[in-house]
Simulated scan of single mutants.
Amino acid sequence: MATLPSYSQIHDIGQSRPGIFQLVEVAFHNFQDVFNGKRAFQDAYQQTDPLATSILASVILSGLTLIVSEITRNFSQVDRLWSILPAIYIVHYSHWASLNNVHSDRVDTAAVIAVIWSVRLTFNYWRKGGYQWSSEDYRWDVIRAAIGKPAFFIMNITFISFMQNFLLVAITTPVYLFLVVAKNFPQSEVATTADTVFSRGMMLAVILEFFADQQQWSFHQAKQSYKTTSKVPAGYDKAELDRGFLYSGLWAFSRHPNFVGEQLFWVLLYQWSAFVTDSIYNWAGMGALMYLFLFQGSTWLTELITSNKYKDYKIYQKHVSMFLPRVQSIREGGFYFPDQNEEAKKQR
């Protein structure tokens, strides 16, 4: 069996970071032997640390997305992979464990949940036209205009193509820790209440994302219909359609409930790994932390653009929190604009 890191104490697993560069170097040589015909692919795959394989794959994909983005001048190449790669990496950990006779229900459970997460998010991205060749995140144009082409090229090399790809590996590293725990401490592979809480919590996060994205999709479909026909679709408020942005349903409590679900999903996976490794925190938390930072920055930019587009959005920002609902909003049944009548207020 391929060598995974060995530990005498389960607590040490989360505190000792693996030698990433050494692992990737070994992975590179293993797969170079495959390319040169010196060994079979499955043998190299099975004998390579699965985290190293994921990182090596992300390096290759980073280079490819950089080349494609510069040739096509479309910088949303990583966006098209965003909902797919994390699930592939986690399923890869599960498959590797199976080949090497490492039994872990936690890894397998995480793989199933990740696939569900991936299918839902990929579908949502597809129906918004994300996989059309000409589709590109509108924020890249804003950034490119603000910093200039030379600086944007550097940003593409560092952040857009490479750092984002590495992040998609980093957020899956808690599952790698499940694998290391299963190999070193097979007796710990007993389902606990905590396993149930974390796994079901992740599913609830996916459900939250589903309803939030569906409400947003339905609203924009209704808004488009309203613009075309000048008729208010059944179940929608004319004032809300005129304002141009969604602030009812889940969006009356959070300005980005879908982002809440997305961040919660990966934070719960990390917290699950912290519990399994018997530690308050572990090195896999860097992925979740970077994910939170990314959402802070990207959401700030999104709202900057939105507030300039819709004049009433700043009022909405004052009364509704960006992510986690305020206690007052919950008590009042959500946000409503001052010009809405009492009946509308009660309906919320």
Rank of each mutant, 00 (worst) to 15 (best):
G129W: 05
K311W: 10
E262Q: 14
T3S: 07
I147K: 03
A151M: 14
S188E: 11
G19R: 15
A111K: 00
Y131R: 11
W283I: 07
N30P: 00
S134H: 10
N30I: 03
F275V: 15
T192L: 07
M202C: 01
L301F: 05
A2N: 06
L208R: 04
F178R: 00
D43G: 04
Q214S: 06
K345C: 02
Y89H: 06
Y89I: 03
W272R: 00
S98F: 04
S6L: 10
V112A: 13
G287K: 04
F152T: 02
H103V: 11
V78I: 13
F35Q: 04
V26Q: 04
N100E: 14
A44I: 04
A344F: 13
G249L: 05
K227Y: 10
I143A: 13
T302Q: 12
S218W: 04
W217L: 14
N101T: 15
W82F: 12
V59E: 05
M202H: 00
G63T: 14
I113Q: 01
Q9K: 13
S58N: 02
E70R: 14
S273Q: 03
W126D: 08
V34A: 15
A2Y: 04
G201T: 07
L167N: 02
S69A: 14
V24G: 03
T228H: 14
T192R: 01
A111Q: 02
F211D: 02
A284V: 08
W266H: 12
L304Q: 09
V68G: 08
W96P: 00
I315D: 05
V119R: 10
Q9E: 13
W133E: 11
Y89S: 03
S58V: 09
V267C: 06
L64I: 02
Q271S: 09
Y7G: 01
P186S: 08
F265M: 14
G235R: 11
T109L: 15
V206N: 03
L250R: 06
I171D: 08
S225T: 08
A111T: 05
P18A: 01
T3V: 09
T122R: 11
G63Q: 10
I13L: 14
Q9S: 10
S321N: 13
S254V: 00
D108Q: 14
S69F: 09
I55A: 00
T196I: 12
Y93E: 03
S135Q: 07
K238Q: 14
Q216A: 12
I84P: 02
V115I: 13
L241D: 08
L292I: 11
F41V: 12
R39W: 09
F21T: 15
D312E: 15
G14K: 02
L268T: 05
P338E: 02
V327Y: 12
V59D: 04
Q77I: 09
T3N: 05
F75G: 00
K309H: 12
V232M: 09
G334I: 01
F323L: 11
S225P: 05
S58H: 02
F162H: 10
K223G: 02
D278P: 07
F159D: 08
S58K: 00
I13D: 05
Y291F: 15
V181E: 04
Y125H: 10
L61A: 06
G63K: 13
I13M: 13
L51V: 08
P325H: 03
G14R: 06
E70C: 13
V24S: 05
Y176E: 01
W283M: 07
W272F: 13
V107I: 14
L167F: 06
L292R: 01
I10C: 06
W140I: 15
F28A: 08
D33S: 14
